[in-house]
Design a protein around this nucleic acid. Structure first.
Lengths: 352, 352
DNA sequence: ATACGAGTTTACAGCGCTGTATCTTGAGGC
DNA sequence: GCCTCAAGATACAGCGCTGTAAACTCGTAT
């Protein structure tokens, strides 16, 4: 059963292919009667335009590629959803490319592998450097996400990680916490996110007149929640005094929660734990997780806005946009009002 | 800056476009010297084939659509990852379509909206019925996933939900649990998954010579973990005696865990909780979750296998494949060995 | 009656690529 | 020395659609 083509419809309706095309596209100057006849033929034959053919001639594919490290990481799947929905609103479809953070896969994203396949690329790089991006990037419109490489030539969207981390610290300080740890720095970490968050953490302490204690910056073996839990366990065992933890992501926070539970320390009473990314993970932990919340919806719409502008011909230099962030407050930090009611003068010292 | 085309390369190399095409495709009968010359021209000009044009002539797009309810639901994002990786292995790209389980979106998936855009569709339906699928489905190769509609005409892949639920029940029975609840039946549930799992649950009890107690089939207001927790809380408050819960998915199980904790009942000592889908959620709950584990990798590879066969011309009737499932054992159920060591004769009765 | 132009409709080229059929070449057989 | 044949290279049509420009229609102005 051959697919129905424009010519088939044209023949049945007794008009030219262009007229059929005009009807399909709702071109205004088509006589009502003809429009009816053509529409009837379309319905009768069940005609559907061949998008590939349309693309070849228009040069537009109506698709954008979304290149992210892992599709099943909660942050990225939640972000993907926002982007897919925002893209749909603008009549674009999304094809998802998983890089697993690997350098060669990230190179492939830029190397026009999608040549003529997508109109633009939204890319959350992890391993690749700014220089490589600038070098490899041809002319497919590109918007970068995250705290990784950000060459001046490309558009870029992120939240203000430094400010967010400082705010997270202030949030805990307001609740009387004084021994706030940062979890954590990963050995051989190639990502830039941690740096920014660590910087903001230190900045927050300094702003409050506190001296950052290097012993409170916990280092973690890898990016798993097991490793982060292990790091917290080890710190507590060493006798490090901690009454709050700012984590680089929700996974790490989940590990911290486990370690606290294992050590018999109550969260949030003994230690307050603060995650990052406001992913679904935070809804399932015990207690549930207070987490820095990037505005994923704003992230998505800003990325799409920049990208569509490029697709529509904008040729200026790279634009850098900061989107809002907030703090989703759940059970792993004391409620602010409770704190205000019973201000604590002394930092809580864990028993382990 | 115009894109480099085949003709541009041909001109530089001083050969026909077809020869360049042959080089690009590694066609064997090309003289080594010519191949070198053409390759040099390709490299020099930075030529990348225009996939859209190639598609128009070959009729193959190299893309498959994956239509799922929610991309950021852990089960679906994990499944998506498997499918994307399996597809990549077979040189297909995946475009993801989110239906949100809505009927009109599910209709759209089948209505050739992707006409000429994808070579095939992998579709996890929720709302649409078997009849509608049979009626709407044109000739784009299609493979269905899940327990929803499964018209005889379409290929279909799932796990044996009835058997898995029965096994889950037996697993708890072996540990001496006797008051096993099923969580839960959702009012106005349009999905078929619950039915199958409930059936298997009842079957498992009957096989063990137990009489299913209707009071142990908990009904839940919606699909959130809050609602499932509420259902468990209410049951416990009514004084229903429960020592084990088989849940229709991990989200429900997470809600159950919270309800137990709130009621002061230890999991797994007082109540054993068993989730479904083996999603990442189970790693973050307290305790971590024992969960029925569909073999997502087998699901993905089987779906791709059936789909590519159809794409490659197979025209037979719908094939139905059952893929394996297992049980990922974590903290929400007692370890089997401990149970064997200390067999319990009496069901544990929760204190609430 | 003729010209004009706004509104309709069409012919045709061509997007960039590949499949088919065809042509060229040179080695080997007689 | 001529013919055969396979390997190597090419010409050309055409995938299904849309943009452009030209053509046609018909009511109104001249």
């Amino acid at each position: 059963m051959k697919r129905v083509r424009l010519v088939d419809v044209a023949e049945v309706a007794g008009v030219s292919t262009k007229t059929v095309s005009n009807v399909v596209h709702d071109y205004p100057h088509v006589a009502p009667e003809l429009r009816r006849r053509v529409q009837a033929a379309i319905d009768k034959l069940g005609y559907r335009p061949n998008l590939t053919a349309r693309r070849l001639v228009t040069g537009r594919t109506g698709m954008i590629a979304l290149a992210i490290p892992e599709i099943d990481h909660p942050y990225f799947s939640e972000l993907s959803r926002q982007i897919a929905e925002e893209a749909a609103r603008r009549n674009y479809r999304v094809i998802i490319e998983q890089t697993l953070g690997k350098l060669d896969a990230e190179h492939a994203v830029l190397e026009d592998r999608e040549a003529g396949l997508v109109d633009g690329i939204i890319f959350h790089p992890v391993s690749i450097g700014a220089l490589s991006i600038a070098k490899l990037h041809h002319d497919t419109p590109l918007v970068l996400l995250g705290e990784g490489a950000m060459p001046a030539t490309s558009d870029h969207v992120m939240i203000d990680n430094v400010a967010a981390a400082a705010e997270a610290v202030h949030f805990l300080l307001r609740q009387g916490r004084r021994r706030i740890a940062f979890l954590g720095v990963v050995e051989d970490d190639v990502t830039f996110s941690t740096d920014k968050r660590l910087l903001g953490y230190q900045q927050g302490l300094i702003e409050a007149g506190l001296d950052p204690d290097p012993g409170l910056v916990l280092s973690v073996k890898d990016f798993s929640s097991e490793a982060s839990g292990e790091a917290v366990r080890a710190a507590l065992e060493r006798g490090v005094s901690i009454d709050g933890i700012v984590c680089r992501d929700d996974k790490f926070a989940a590990g911290a929660l486990r370690a606290c539970a294992a050590a018999g320390i109550s969260v949030p009473d003994g230690i307050a734990v603060l995650g990052w990314d406001d992913t679904a993970i935070g809804k399932y932990t015990t207690p549930s997780l207070t987490s820095v919340a990037p505005d994923k919806s704003a992230l998505a719409s800003t990325a799409l806005e920049l990208l569509t502008e490029r697709i529509d011909g904008f040729r200026g230099v790279g634009r850098h946009r900061i989107v809002p962030h907030g703090l989703t407050i759940r059970g792993s930090t004391p409620s602010v009002s409770a704190e205000l009611a019973v201000p604590r003068g002394e930092p809580a010292v864990p028993s382990a």
